[in-house]
Design a protein around this nucleic acid. Structure first.
Length: 199
DNA sequence: CCAATGATCTGCT
DNA sequence: GCAGATCATTGGC
């Protein structure tokens, strides 16, 4: 699975990232779950309302990392899309394939399969922090995005814990992996059926 | 300056 | 499976 062309739109890049590898300081994971966020066109994106100090990295060149902190956890995105479009792919989960000892040390009492299951857990396992925001992924820095083995299949579905734009199936997973989080609707919008009161 | 929001995680039932 | 904790960023007064 080669690293996809990161200048494409996020929802085209996202499925191509499944099976690729993310390495930080000797710890490597195989990406098994991602979500696409398409900047100002996407109500669920941090970039929807335009550029702010926090999301500035997403407006920068593709192939860089966008790290943000929320609820006391870090989440990381691969910046992609045509220049200036602020598209990004959130890395939601991965399987640790190298550096297991270091990974286990960072997450004591957690089963191997869920060391990097969930965005916040993944960054903690890899040791990614806000200091890695806007770091380049393709030029041999501390954080590197590398090609990996091709996966048997890639499944698409609605995004997790996003309160808007559920109709876009921009969550991509490797269905063969045990490190993928369960489908779950956002608490505020979990009712798939149209809630009443149209007019 | 203050209050609300949010791409989450963990623990308990 | 569900409710609560917890923290930085944002928008408004």
């Amino acid at each position: 699975m080669p690293v996809p062309d990161l200048d494409q739109r996020a929802h085209l890049v996202a499925p191509g990232l499944i099976g690729c590898e993310l390495w930080v300081d000797g710890v490597g994971v195989r990406i098994v779950e991602v979500e696409a966020y398409e900047g100002p066109d996407d109500p669920a994106s941090h970039a929807w309302r335009g550029q702010t100090p926090r999301n500035a990295a997403m407006f920068g060149p593709s192939g860089h990392l966008y790290v943000y902190q929320m609820h006391g956890h870090f989440c990381c995105n691969v910046v992609c899309g045509p220049p200036g479009t602020a598209h990004g792919v959130l890395i939601r989960a991965g399987e640790v394939i190298e550096g297991l000892d270091a990974a286990r040390e960072r997450r004591v009492g957690v089963r191997d399969a869920q060391l990097a299951r969930g965005p916040g857990n993944l960054t903690r396992t890899l040791g990614i922090t806000r200091a890695d925001n806007a770091t380049p992924l393709l030029t041999g820095g501390r954080v590197r995005l590398l090609p990996g083995e091709r996966t048997a299949a890639v499944a698409a579905g609605p995004r997790v814990n996003v309160s808007r734009a559920h109709d876009r199936p921009w969550r991509f997973v490797d269905p063969a992996s045990g490190s993928v989080s369960a489908f779950k609707w956002h608490p505020a919008t979990r009712t798939p059926k149209a809630d009443p009161a149209p007019a």
